[in-house]
Structures are given as C-alpha cells and as structure tokens.
Computed example of a mutant assay.
Amino acid sequence: MKYFNILIIVFSVFFGCKQQEKTAEEQTASIETENFEAFGALMDGNDAYDANEMLTKYQEMAVTDTTATRFTAKVTEVCKSKGCWMKLQLGQEKEVMVKFKDYGFFMPKDIVGKEVVVNGLAFVEEMGVEDQRHFAEDGGKTEEEIAAIVDPKKTFSFEADGVLLKK
C-alpha cells in the first residue's frame, strides 16, 4: 500500500508539471517567427481584415457592442511609460485604442509606423474626460493639449489577446 501511495504522488506531480508547461506555452510573452514577432497568445495572421474594412465594422457598431476579430493596421502611438497600450490607424483619419488583455504583455515603445496584426475583441465605448487625459499624459501630450480635453467622446477600442509585429 505504501508503494501505491508513492506511485500516485509521483504521477500527480508529473501530470501537474505537464499542465503548467502547456499553460506557459499558451501565454508566451514573445516568440520569434520568420516575418513577425509575436506577443501574448499565439495566433496566425491569416484571415485578418485590413484597416479600412475594420473601420467599416466599427462604424456599424453601437456603444457597448463587442465582436471577436483580427485586423492589420499601422501603429500611430504607443504608451511611452510601459508600452501598455497603442493606437492604430484606421481609414479616414480614425484611430483605435488597443489595450492588452489582463495587462498580460506589453509592446516595445519604438514601433510607431510599424504594421501589426491584432487579435481579440473590438468594441465601441464612450471614454470619459479623466481616461482621455490619462492616455494623453501617457502619450506625451503637452499640458495645454491635456487641459483642452473637456468632453467625453465615442471611441473605437480593442482588447488584444495576441499581437504580431511585422519585422
């Protein structure tokens, strides 16, 4: 009986460790691929909308609507503090604010102008004045620009669980 209990403990430890390896693999922070550097959850860049198609989808959404999607766009701004958010260019001078699921990963701060593929949830929200000012401060805006923010605004937002950064 004693050997049987030891055997059960050994199997429990072995299978418990196997499960942790899989979880760590699913949540890889940064993996190199041939043409992209991956952040967050592993994904492929296939079947991604382009920025203009995504703008059309956003314009059809109402505040609080959410849709799972993947799209490609150029980075226009990144949080200068930690890389904890970025803005992407959609068509017609519109942008989308991208945050990262559970702050599970951050982006490099020097990627403005580079192309990314983001995977996650697209939604439309009304951003309050305080949040707008916070993001403006993180983005390096001047005191005058921050003070000029006085009204809430409808924004296109995205919570990414994975990002591919084109090399």
Rank of each mutant, 00 (worst) to 15 (best):
K2H: 15
I6P: 06
L7A: 15
I8L: 10
V10H: 13
Q20V: 13
Q27L: 15
Q27I: 07
I31D: 08
F39V: 01
A41Q: 10
M43I: 05
M43H: 03
M43R: 03
D44I: 02
N46I: 07
Y49Q: 09
Y49E: 07
E53S: 07
T56A: 11
Y58G: 01
Y58Q: 02
E60D: 09
E60G: 11
M61C: 05
D65C: 13
T66I: 15
T69K: 05
T69F: 06
K74N: 08
K74G: 05
T76E: 05
C79T: 03
S81Q: 09
C84Q: 02
M86T: 05
V96I: 06
M97S: 14
K101Q: 14
G104M: 04
D110N: 14
I111F: 12
V112Q: 11
V116W: 00
N119V: 05
L121M: 10
L121G: 10
V124A: 05
E126W: 06
M127D: 01
Q132Y: 09
F135L: 13
A136C: 07
E143R: 15
A147S: 13
I149S: 11
T155G: 07
F156I: 04
E159G: 04
A160G: 02
A160D: 00
G162Y: 00
V163N: 01
L165Q: 01
K166A: 05
